[in-house]
């Protein structure tokens, strides 16, 4: 039984190793030269690590969001969390131009928290049987927030910055010293691993959760914080990475179900693997130039979303 459960995990680790190696080796600079070690430690290794942390954290945040909302078609990027975090970041940048990174992080997290809370209160008014209205509401809500952010950015000459946050999440700027915030995202996602059972029970419904002696509101708050912090850290460091939190959990769930205790670590590794793959594709497609990983994922993720939406139900 334990061996059976461990198998997907082992497979994911085995798949991740060559991907990480490839990520370390791809680039314009020659690693065999005198500067090879330096390039590796300042640029390649931080980038590879950042991609894996981001992928893992976003995939886990996607699962958490789906358990909170009890809907498969949501992720932080389609519920206004990302745009609200960008809004918080933008407002903090405008209000306190001198503020340190800490202030901005807090502003982004609070923004993400508020945006998600509004989304959750919005969908409470939807008829419960209309499952697809929930992602639709989320998409429009994030669209409205995104338009506000873009407009403020345009008015305040910060459009370049806003454009990166909302449209071109990428890792080409990652070097040592400029990605460490992602550890906080990784830490928040790690919290979800510890709370896996609680989140899974919450997904069974408030009544079941309460019946088992759990406080659904407390678990909900924990989940909200995890989602907001992961999204805010990723937004502030590399910008929006669309659809990863939706695609990876859905596929892992199809293969091994939603017993989060067993599936969350696999989801995290799969998220890291998918993002590494997309990053490598982005680096190779027009070498020596780069495509932002968000552009690659935008196409791939939207395609998979459509497939998930239209695949015949009940055959899994």
């Amino acid at each position: 039984m334990i061996v059976l459960r461990a198998r997907p995990l082992v497979l994911m680790v085995l798949a991740l190793i060559p991907l990480a190696l490839a990520s370390l080796l791809i680039g314009v600079a020659d690693l065999s030269g005198a500067q090879g070690g330096l390039i590796l430690s300042i640029s390649r290794w931080p980038r590879t690590l950042a991609v894996m942390l981001t992928g893992a954290a976003l995939a886990v945040a996607g699962v958490v969001m789906q358990e909170l909302v009890r809907n498969r078609f949501v992720e932080p990027g389609t519920t206004g969390t990302g745009e609200a975090a960008a809004l918080g970041l933008l407002l903090a940048t405008l209000a306190f131009p001198e503020a340190g990174i800490g202030t901005r992080m807090i502003a982004a997290s609070l923004g993400g928290l508020a945006g998600t809370a509004v989304f959750l209160s919005l969908i409470r008014h939807l008829p419960p049987q209309e499952v697809l209205l929930i992602p639709l509401t989320g998409l429009i809500w994030s669209g409205v927030l995104g338009a506000v952010v873009l407009h403020i950015g345009w008015q305040t000459d910060l459009i370049q910055l806003v454009g990166i946050w909302l449209m071109t999440g990428e890792f080409s700027g990652v070097i040592a010293g400029r990605y460490e915030l992602l550890w906080i995202a990784g830490l928040a996602a790690g919290l979800a691993l510890f709370a896996a059972d609680r989140l899974a029970i919450l997904g069974l419904g408030d009544g079941v959760a309460r019946g088992l002696g759990l406080n659904p509101e407390a678990v909900m708050r924990l989940g909200l914080v995890i989602v907001a912090v992961v999204t805010a850290m990723v937004m502030a460091t590399v910008g929006m990475i669309p659809f990863l939190g939706l695609v990876v959990p859905n596929i892992v769930s199809r293969v091994m179900g939603d017993n989060l205790r067993a599936s969350l670590p696999v989801t995290a590794l799969a998220g890291a693997g998918l993002l590494l793959t997309c990053d490598i594709i982005g680096r190779l497609l027009i070498f020596p130039y780069e495509l932002p990983v968000s552009t690659v994922l935008g196409v791939l993720g939207a395609g998979v979303f459509l497939w998930l939406l239209w695949r015949r139900p009940g055959h899994d």
Binding site: E130, L136, L139, I140, M167, T295, G298, V299, A302, L306
Partner: peptide, 19 residues
């Protein structure tokens, strides 16, 4: 709902492709 959601996602897909 499925039709509208499909349209919205299709819009994102087409925009991403253009990008």
């Amino acid at each position: 709902a499925r039709m509208i959601l499909t349209g919205v996602i299709l819009g994102i897909l087409l925009r991403s492709l253009a990008n």
